[in-house]
């Protein structure tokens, strides 16, 4: 093996990365060649330079576990509803749907009827304290206020009445309640058109 061949293998030999066959041949050459032996020593020294450099850089090892553990913990807010949601979400969604349908089909008499009652000196719905909720297809007369329930589906008619505590006797100078009713979209419904034709038959299908 000549010097060129040995120098070509030197970068591997300085790290002990030559296979056994070439290693023996290179060592025999190094034992006889001062120039190649010097180059070999330089290469080995630089391996040590790099090792010493890297070791000095990484001598102090941080403790990584606290930071990693903190990032592994689930979000506390997300943990509770996820369990709950898996079991109860479908039932809750169904219940919400029933409530939404019931509310949408509810005869929204409150602002208009309250206003009418006040204008005519009659009690409002709250004051009337309707004893029994109207049955489908039957009209009922309660303290002078006619409640026509024939347009109500059975579910809505038999459901618990809405809280009435917000209603009160209205003064004639309080037309602004109509303004309150507008955001509900009443003026756009056929019921309002019928209301204008026959104010006492709110939400009537007739």
């Amino acid at each position: 093996m000549d010097c060129n061949e040995v120098r070509n293998l030197m970068p591997l030999h300085v790290g002990g990365d030559l296979e056994s066959g070439p290693t023996q041949a290179v060592n025999e050459h190094l034992a006889a060649c001062a120039a190649c032996s010097k180059e070999f020593d330089q290469g080995v020294t630089l391996v040590g330079v790099r090792r010493a450099f890297w070791k000095a850089q990484s001598s102090s090892v941080p403790d990584f576990w606290p930071a990693i553990e903190a990032r592994l913990k689930p979000e506390p807010a997300a943990a509770v509803p996820s369990l709950w949601a898996h079991r109860w979400a479908p039932m809750a969604a169904a219940a919400a749907l029933v409530v939404a349908v019931s509310v949408s089909m509810w005869p929204r008499p409150d602002p208009a009827m309250a206003l009418m009652g006040a204008n005519q000196g009659l009690p409002t719905v709250a004051e009337a304290q309707v004893p029994a909720w109207p049955i489908e297809g039957q009209a009922s007369e309660t303290a002078g206020t006619e409640v026509l329930a024939d347009a109500q589906p059975l579910e809505a008619a038999t459901a618990a009445p809405a809280p009435l505590s917000g209603l009160r006797r209205l003064a004639p100078h309080e037309p602004s309640l109509l303004e309150e009713a507008r955001p509900w979209g009443l003026e756009e419904t056929p019921a309002v058109l019928r209301f204008e034709e026959n104010p006492m038959r709110v939400a009537s299908g007739r």
Partner: peptide
């Protein structure tokens, strides 16, 4: 077992650190 993973981190963090720092 999260504690087991913590032990793995403890056993190997030095080598991961040396390589990354290098």
């Amino acid at each position: 077992d999260q504690d087991a993973f913590g032990q793995l981190v403890g056993r190997h963090q030095a080598r991961a650190w040396r390589v990354a720092r290098g």
